[in-house]
Every structure is written in structure tokens, then in C-alpha cells.
Nucleic acid binder design. Sequence first.
DNA 1: TGATATTGGTTGCATTTGCAACTATCATAT
DNA 2: ATATGATAGTTGCAAATGCAACCAATATCA
Lengths: 147, 147
Amino acid sequence: MTRSTSTWALFLTVHSVLVGKMESVLKSANLPPLEWYDVLWALERAPGHRLRMHELAHLVVLSRSNLTRLVDRLEDAKLVEREPSVDDRRGAYCVLKPAGSALGKKMWPVYEKCIFELFNEHLSEKEDAALNAVLRRILAAARADKE
Amino acid sequence: MTRSTSTWALFLTVHSVLVGKMESVLKSANLPPLEWYDVLWALERAPGHRLRMHELAHLVVLSRSNLTRLVDRLEDAKLVEREPSVDDRRGAYCVLKPAGSALGKKMWPVYEKCIFELFNEHLSEKEDAALNAVLRRILAAARADKE
DNA sequence: TGATATTGGTTGCATTTGCAACTATCATAT
DNA sequence: ATATGATAGTTGCAAATGCAACCAATATCA
């Protein structure tokens, strides 16, 4: 709890504070929350702008049931569409609609500005690279560990 | 959105995955969630094992109203107690009870093990120090910015 | 083939959250 | 003193979450 874990505590605090600020910036720009962007962006990158629900859940790190509701909301907002899968009739695809793509593009500059001002601006190139490497390693280990 | 922000994305993912894992370890050890620990630990360190509600809220990075409910639950669980402030009659102290202190001590080894296995173990001394410095800088900047 | 276990996804319910509104006290300044 | 504004904390209500239960559909394997 002395030095050995204080970095973790700091990590948690930085996360809360930064995410909190970003959410409030998005909100005051009349834009939806961060996780909407995550989904839109994941779909934007995906081949055919479509992903199976469980792939999407994994990418945005959300529980299945949570993703179900989130996609419900996105579908209500006409940003995405569910499409039953033909090869596996249990499954469904979540596919990005043009309006969803447009919203993503509208959110991005605002979000990017936040990321820059709150995060990147305070890192040198070297530090960014080092941090990236460390986080990658941590994530890989966590996911290797009986996911 | 290429390399320049991918570290931030990684940061978010690492946070979700690690916190998710830690919560599930705590749960399967029949222990309460992380934020309970945060509060108990903040009070443990505080002079007289007591803090004003708003100080506590700031330390654990929670909105006021959220902290109110969280303290409600902790009080129900007999872990803390509210005590009206004499010098400022609007305010209240949250004070740690022995049972709360005991629970904190019981949670700590479990939590510490998680932190070590998921986080610290994958960092060299140097990297930990560097990360610590970077996070500190980011947090300071975020808090300076019209808190 | 038929029994059993897995996987994909949704749903019900209880808990938690976020926000705005509200009460009460304190601070400041005429 | 009195109005004005800020601060401390709580509460009501709508929305989001976590979890376990649930319904398929698919895999596995005797």
C-alpha cells in the first residue's frame, strides 16, 4: 500500500477524473456518452461495418447483457441495426447505419480534443510509446490469465 | 486516431478488464466491491478516522449524491457512522467504525494480490516509477484545469 | 441417433447511477 | 440587519448495470 500499489491507485483516479471530464464535455456538446462512440467506432472499422454481438461485446469490454441494452438504445436511435445471422441462427449481427457513421464522425473531433488536452498533451513521444508498451503487456497478461 | 490516441484506448481497455477481474475476485471471496474498500481505506488514513462527506467524495472521486448513497449502505452495514459537524451545521462527518476497519483489513490481502498479479507484476521498478510520474502529471493537469 | 453440454443472445429484477431540485447553513456585502 | 450567493448534503426519479435465469441453436460424443 506504500509505493508498491500507489501507481494502481493513481491509475484508478486518473481514469475516473478523465472519463468524468470527457463525459461532461460530450454532454455539454449535446453528444451521447463515450460508450456509444466506442461501439460506433468498432463498427466503423469492422469489415462490412458489421460485427456479431459477442465480438462487439469483447471489443468494447462490456458484458453481454449490457451490450444487448446498449445496442437496443443505439437501434432506437436509428444508428445501428440488428440483422439475424444466417450461418448461425442463434446469433445476430450489429450493423452500422449511415446515421451511426455520421454521428461517430461528429463525435470524434470533440472526443479527440479531450484526449489530446487531458492525456496526450502531457506525454512526450517516448513516454507515450513506453506507456503503450506497458499497457499492452498488462492487457495481454490479463487476457491470457484464464479469460 | 492512429497511434496518437491508441494509448488512451488501451488505457480504457486495461481499466475495464482489470477492474472487472478484481471485482469478480472480490465477489467470489464474498467481499464487497472495490469502492467500499476505497472509502474504508480513505477513512483509515484520515486523522481521527473521520472525514467530511465532501472530502471523502473528492478522495474517492465520486459525485456527492453517489457518495451519500454509498455511505448509506456502509452505515447500514455498520461499517461507518455519520456524525453531525459542530462547527458547520450543514455538514456531517463520516467516521470509521471498528467493524469497518476490520473489513478493510480483511479485504486488503485479496485486493493486494489482485493488484500485484494483474498490474505490478508486469512492471519493472523503473517502469512503475515512470508510470507513476506520468499519471501524477496528467492528474495534476486535469485538476488544475478549472476543477 | 439421442443425451449432454456449450454458446449466442435476451430478459426480469434488484441494485446503482446521474442529474436536477431541494433544504439548510454559512459567507459576503451592502 | 438583510438580501444575495455559495456550499454541504440529501432525495426523487429516470436511466443504466450486474446477475442469474432463460430460450434457442449448435457441438460433442457415447
